[in-house]
Computed example of a mutant assay.
Amino acid sequence: MDFKPLIENISKHVILNPEEISVFKRFWKVRTFKKGDYLLRNGDVCRYDNYVLSGALKAFYINAASGDEEIVYFAIDDWWATDIDSFSKQKPSIYSIQAIEDSTVLQISYSSFQNMLVEIPKLERYFRIILESYLGTLQQRIVYNNVFTAEHRYYDFLETYPKIASRVPQYLIASYLGVSAEFISRIRKKNKSS
Rank of each mutant, 00 (worst) to 15 (best):
residue 160 T to I: 08
residue 164 I to E: 07
residue 154 Y to H: 01
residue 142 I to C: 09
residue 146 N to S: 13
residue 133 S to C: 08
residue 119 E to I: 01
residue 159 E to V: 00
residue 122 K to P: 12
residue 126 Y to H: 09
residue 133 S to H: 15
residue 124 E to D: 14
residue 146 N to Q: 10
residue 161 Y to A: 01
residue 149 T to H: 04
residue 125 R to E: 12
residue 123 L to Q: 04
residue 152 H to K: 10
residue 152 H to Q: 06
residue 155 Y to C: 00
residue 124 E to P: 03
residue 131 L to D: 01
residue 165 A to R: 04
residue 137 T to F: 11
residue 123 L to C: 03
residue 120 I to L: 03
residue 145 N to R: 12
residue 130 I to H: 05
residue 163 K to V: 03
residue 144 Y to I: 00
residue 154 Y to I: 02
residue 150 A to S: 12
residue 124 E to T: 13
residue 151 E to S: 09
residue 151 E to H: 04
residue 165 A to M: 06
residue 164 I to R: 01
residue 135 L to N: 14
residue 136 G to P: 05
residue 127 F to T: 08
residue 142 I to G: 02
residue 162 P to K: 03
residue 126 Y to N: 10
residue 132 E to T: 12
residue 165 A to F: 09
residue 144 Y to T: 11
residue 141 R to E: 03
residue 163 K to T: 10
residue 163 K to S: 10
residue 141 R to P: 12
residue 147 V to T: 15
residue 132 E to V: 07
residue 140 Q to D: 14
residue 156 D to F: 06
residue 132 E to I: 11
residue 139 Q to P: 03
residue 145 N to E: 12
residue 140 Q to P: 04
residue 159 E to Y: 08
residue 138 L to S: 11
residue 164 I to A: 05
residue 143 V to N: 01
residue 142 I to Q: 09
residue 139 Q to H: 13
